[in-house]
């Protein structure tokens, strides 16, 4: 029964290819966060706007992103949109699916963060002659991003891990995709996935640690 022979050397020969995959994974996670944060800010503005339609759109987005599997969201970005004649590459579908998920979770985090900022902050800004948008941009937004910084870090980690869901859209250049391809050819399943897991672990730890350093530099108040 236990006749599996470990062949680490053979698996380690694939390391350079896996590291390239890791770069793609990080690239997708970073881009999906950049898009996710921007969209989440827009969703937050929609919710604050007092406009019923905008606020309904934002709420629907948040509800779907948070209450359906991320895997479905990625699948829909590829095959769902494909049904409407919008054909996206696996890379773009995966990126959009993760960004959609990020935006929903982050918008909800931002809403929580806003509750911690007194209404009087906006009032003080408006009294100084700032417009509503200027008050948001220069007074509320920086404080909101600070309060939501830890959840944002968590979402970034989650984005890294979510790239493995690219499997459902046949994504094969990210860390999971590369590993899975190698496995299909060599059957060194345990070794390959153990190495991939270590790489994932190192990336997410590096993110958490550097986030802590960035926070210490950025938030001196």
């Amino acid at each position: 029964m236990f006749n599996y022979n470990f062949r680490w050397n053979q698996a380690l020969n694939s390391l350079p290819r896996m590291l390239e995959g890791a770069l793609v994974t990080m690239e997708i996670a970073l881009l999906s966060m950049a898009i996710g944060v921007s969209v989440a800010i827009l969703l937050t503005l929609c919710r604050l706007s007092g406009n019923r339609i905008l606020s309904a759109i934002a709420t629907t987005w948040v509800e779907i992103a948070r209450n359906t599997p991320a895997l479905f969201q990625i699948y829909m970005a590829h095959f769902g949109l494909g049904g409407f004649g919008i054909h996206l590459s696996p890379y773009v579908s995966l990126l959009i699916g993760i960004a959609f998920n990020n935006a929903g979770y982050l918008a909800e985090n931002f809403r929580g963060a806003l509750k911690a900022i007194p209404e009087t902050q906006t009032r003080a800004g408006r009294s100084l002659g700032l417009s509503q948008l200027q008050a948001f941009r220069h007074i509320i937004l920086p404080q909101m991003l600070r309060i939501a910084f830890l959840p944002m870090t968590n979402q970034m980690v989650w984005a890294i891990l979510m790239t493995s869901l690219g499997a459902v859209v046949a994504m094969n250049t990210d860390l999971y995709g590369v590993t899975s391809d190698l496995n299909a050819r060599t059957f060194r399943t345990f070794e390959l996935f153990a190495i991939a897991a270590v790489i994932f672990y190192v990336i997410t730890k590096a993110i958490t640690l550097s986030a802590r350093l960035i926070a210490a530099r950025l938030f001196r108040y």
Partner: peptide, 23 residues
């Protein structure tokens, strides 16, 4: 106001500079 509403993320100088710059 009674509650001074300092902008906590800005230094004292930046607090005072904000509105002259933006408005």
């Amino acid at each position: 106001f009674q509650q001074w509403n300092a902008f906590p993320h800005l230094t004292v100088l930046e607090n005072v500079m904000l509105a002259p710059r933006k408005a």
